[in-house]
Design a protein around this nucleic acid. Structure first.
Lengths: 343, 343
DNA sequence: AACGCCTCTGCAAACGTTTTCATTGATGAT
DNA sequence: ATCATCAATGAAAACGTTTGCAGAGGCGTT
């Protein structure tokens, strides 16, 4: 094949080698195990690198080594406070171990998720983290066949086909509901988050309804509403429910964004919180404590999940075998602030 | 060099070729220009790919082609509503053109930014987008030497060394201030965002102060405060200012997060907005319209910036030469909602 | 028949690293 | 002087693709 004459002479390791009058092998060693290279040689190489503005070619390295130093993260969307926090923590942890994050978002579309996995595999990520428990069968198969380390983040459940690191979202739904029940509320409006392609939301819902059943409280159809992930939309749904009679005494919100919408709806109707209405959220987003009144919510440790996810994958990479399964179920807790009170 | 016997037989193009009884070249053509491969041959190759679960090796391709199909994005932090929106839009646009985003965050640390650029170059990104105008000299130099397409996002200014796509943040600061002035406010508290390593915030500040100067209104020292990017912190700063006398009649907030903090502070003090206090934000974050009262803010089209940034880089890649400089200055506008009123 | 053209495919040379193995001196022990 | 040891380096074979060139048939035209 003909030389690519046109390519703009971007310097390679052999150029550096020539410049420093050593062999490419030595330059490579300079990077990968400097201590075996004689001091003066090292100096010469350094000078050459500086001179040529040499930057190693990751593709070539990864081709040779069979590892790219890159770890994939698949989230529903970046554009969502809580996943952004997760991603940031994940990325930072990786950076600390000199690896890079390759992030991809599927927009709650499981089919598209498959494409993303393929794409990440094509980039030869060394490991993979996916948000959520529910994925296409094919995804699991291909990860298994390739046997690259993989974990599922955010939601936790026992005996999954892949290790998970996160919280049990059924528990989350349960404790939020129990909190309202303990305060004496019986007529509760449930504003669940969109369930499609979202096992977290689905789990919260089933946890919540289970808690209600345990308490022996009926939840009529019109008290179970699904809200988009959007303050404005949640606000409108809440407005509708709060202007009808009878009015619920409490609102369970599938996440803090929905809760924020509820708060604003109440405000615009002049309904005093928590005297006339209790509101609980889920997530403890940044800023939820500053809302007026402070939002009672179930804390989900997003950053910690991101950090642990990254750390565990790296561990898996560096000690490939042995190990018990690295599942981690993180604790959740209700943070009672000003938005809930005894009925 | 000895064969890497241990590597778990992950199939390559030659395995596929053998399986389909063709040459590797033909398999490669199957991917890159299917129309030249005979139908039956194509079928055979498809079967082999299916059978072996073959996924092309991006590193090898990128090594050979000298292009990785990957485009870098450097942001201060992902974990920030507005940059998350930007990144999401950027990523989606790239995906549409079958390219991948490699994102990196420096946490407002210009020094670390240099490392990130290097790291992205090592990954051989085909192009690069950076948020902000101000960067290390070395960054510009290396981008220039490598001559990979690069743009600066978010902030706009004429005659920069790299094309920029964004809004003029001095204008942003100016129009926000003018809005308050037009409503008759003279005693305005300025809660600027953190300025260090943040040319956007600095520009907003200078635009705002210039507008005040033009109007001939003095801004005393204690009316210029810098707030962290955090609802709680902004709330506390606002609380302090709002409990002192004299109380400002309006608050200029460097971004919507700060404005939210101000709103909550006013609420907790029982100060009615906008009757007793006008508040303006900047950014028009998702949800800012749903706040009660609706937040008046200066709209910055984050998604559009992300999308255009991606599109422009791709254009630059596909028609490498010619072209006028692709700078784009996007319009800003004040969205008056319920949080500002005549004094 | 001879020739040219077209379609499809194979050959083999890159791409820029890493790493095994061998080589070269230098040093120290016998 | 001989030999083993050691430190520092070089030579060369991979890694898995892409692609220019050339070859092999098939077909239509002279």
């Amino acid at each position: 094949m003909a030389r690519r004459l046109f390519r703009k002479c971007i310097p390679g390791i052999v150029d550096v080698a020539k410049h420093a009058s050593v062999s490419p092998a030595t330059v490579s060693r300079y990077f990968n195990s400097p201590e075996v290279v004689r001091y003066e040689t090292r100096k010469r190489i350094e000078a050459a690198i500086e001179e040529l503005d040499y930057v190693p070619n990751g593709a070539a390295r990864s081709l040779n080594r069979g590892a790219s130093g890159t770890i994939g993260l698949i989230v529903p969307t970046i554009d969502n406070a809580i996943f952004a926090e997760l991603a940031q923590a994940f990325s930072t942890s990786l950076f600390r171990h000199s690896r890079t994050m390759l992030i991809a978002a599927h927009g709650y579309d499981l089919a598209r998720e498959g494409v993303l996995v393929e794409s990440l595999l094509e980039h030869r990520v060394d490991a993979l983290a996916i948000v959520g428990l529910k994925h296409e069968e094919q995804t699991f198969e291909i990860l298994d066949k390739r046997d690259i380390p993989a974990v599922m983040l955010w939601n936790y459940r026992d005996r999954q086909s892949l290790p998970c690191i996160g919280v049990d979202n059924r528990e989350v739904g349960r404790v939020a509901t129990e909190h309202l029940l303990e305060l004496g509320h019986r007529d509760i409006l449930f504003l669940f988050a969109e369930l499609r392609g979202n096992d977290r939301a689905a789990d919260r819902r089933s946890g919540a309804l289970a808690a209600m059943a345990t308490a022996g409280v009926e939840v009529p159809r019109n008290r179970r509403v699904v809200s988009p992930y959007d303050v404005q939309a949640a606000k409108e749904l809440a407005l509708k429910a709060l202007t009808a009679t009878p009015r619920p005494t409490a609102i369970f919100s599938g996440n803090d964004v929905i809760a924020l919408g509820v708060l604003f709806a109440a405000m615009s109707l002049g309904i005093r919180i928590p005297d006339q209405l209790s509101v609980i959220g889920i997530g403890d987003f940044r800023g939820s404590s500053a809302v007026e009144p402070g939002l009672t919510t179930v804390r989900i440790p997003a950053r910690r999940i991101g950090r642990r996810g990254a750390e565990i994958l790296i561990e898996l990479l560096e000690w490939p075998s042995g190990h018990t399964r690295p599942d981690e179920r993180l604790p959740v807790e209700v943070l009672q602030r000003g938005s809930t009170a005894l009925i």
